[in-house]
């Protein structure tokens, strides 16, 4: 195990194939790819993907074994009547808990993991600047969140279709035929993309600020729960609109007759604001932070 001193320095003589410089956008994409590759290897990520593939079918089986129906959620009473009610019941019941947790596991860890391993000083001393690393990791976390929503949309929808394609009763009492119902189910799930990205930004802020994955992940889940509690309080409309949990329910308006899109539009504003504020705050904390122990 020698250091081959006779062959140092390394590679200085081989300048010919020097790299061409990439701008900040290119650099960000480089980091984005590296982070996605690292994520793909994580057991927790793979586990969540597997769970998302089989979970909905397990829910369908569970519902089939019951004669009663979930009464507390919209569409709950129709799960034995129409397969389309199943993805909608899952969405209505679980979105505001499950989706923040899913993004929290990745986004709440992707920065603080490097604090935990002490590897910031390793990756910050390569050819990528602080901005590129911050943005690249953010993009990777956001990509995972989008991917999971798309995956859940597909598996929940297919689980429902497998259970039956009868028309489903909408939130305006109207009967929605199978074709339109499919489109509404997909639109409802996709309408949760902005709020899950909002929680991604929040988890990133927690991860960067605390340098601790427990705070990054746990904090995101706790805050999601807090939003649920606060939303029960009686407050003016703008108060409800500020909460990041409210846009998860914007799809209600898709299913009424006639449909209304006000909450969805305002939800976009809310989520954009949360993403901007949390992202900016995280960056301001990170950009001039001292890496390593002060000595």
């Amino acid at each position: 195990m020698s250091l081959a001193a006779d062959r140092w320095p390394a590679f200085v003589e081989r300048e010919a194939t020097a790299r061409k410089p990439v701008g900040p956008v290119g650099g960000t994409l480089v980091v984005w790819r590296v982070e996605l590759l690292k994520l793909a290897g994580k057991i927790l990520v793979r586990g969540m993907i597997v769970l998302s593939l089989i979970g909905p079918f397990m829910v369908v089986e569970f519902l089939n074994l019951q004669s009663a129906t979930p009464g507390d959620t919209p569409f709950g009473q129709w799960v034995h009547t129409s397969g389309f009610a199943i993805p909608m019941t899952i969405l209505g019941f679980g979105a505001q808990w499950i989706l923040p947790a899913i993004t929290g596991v990745v986004a709440g860890d992707i920065y603080s993991a490097d604090d935990h391993f002490g590897t910031w000083k390793t990756i910050l001393t390569r050819s990528r600047g602080r901005g590129e690393l911050f943005a690249g990791k953010f993009l990777a976390a956001a990509t995972f969140a989008v991917f999971m929503v798309l995956l859940l949309t597909a598996t929940d929808l297919f689980a429902g279709l497998a259970a039956g394609r009868e028309p489903v009763v909408g939130l305006g009492g109207q009967l929605v035929p199978a074709g339109h119902a499919t489109w509404l189910v997909v639109a409802s799930y996709l309408s949760d993309l902005p709020p899950i990205l909002g929680f991604t930004a929040l988890a990133v802020l927690l991860s960067v600020a605390s340098r601790n994955s427990v705070v990054g992940i746990g904090g995101t889940v706790v805050i999601a729960v807090l939003f649920q509690i606060v939303t029960l309080a009686s407050m003016p409309e703008w108060g409800q609109q500020v909460l990041l949990s409210t846009p998860f329910m914007a799809w209600h308006g898709f299913w009424t007759s006639p449909a209304f899109y006000g909450p969805f539009g305002w939800g976009l504003v809310t989520c954009t604001a949360w993403i901007a504020v949390c992202g900016l705050a995280g960056w301001l904390i990170f950009r001039r932070r001292t890496i390593g122990a002060a000595s």
Partner: peptide
């Protein structure tokens, strides 16, 4: 800018990896 560490290598305290 981002070319600050071009041609610069090394480490601070014990090198850390994943």
């Amino acid at each position: 800018g981002s070319a600050w560490l071009e041609g610069v290598g090394g480490f601070v305290e014990t090198p850390r990896f994943y």
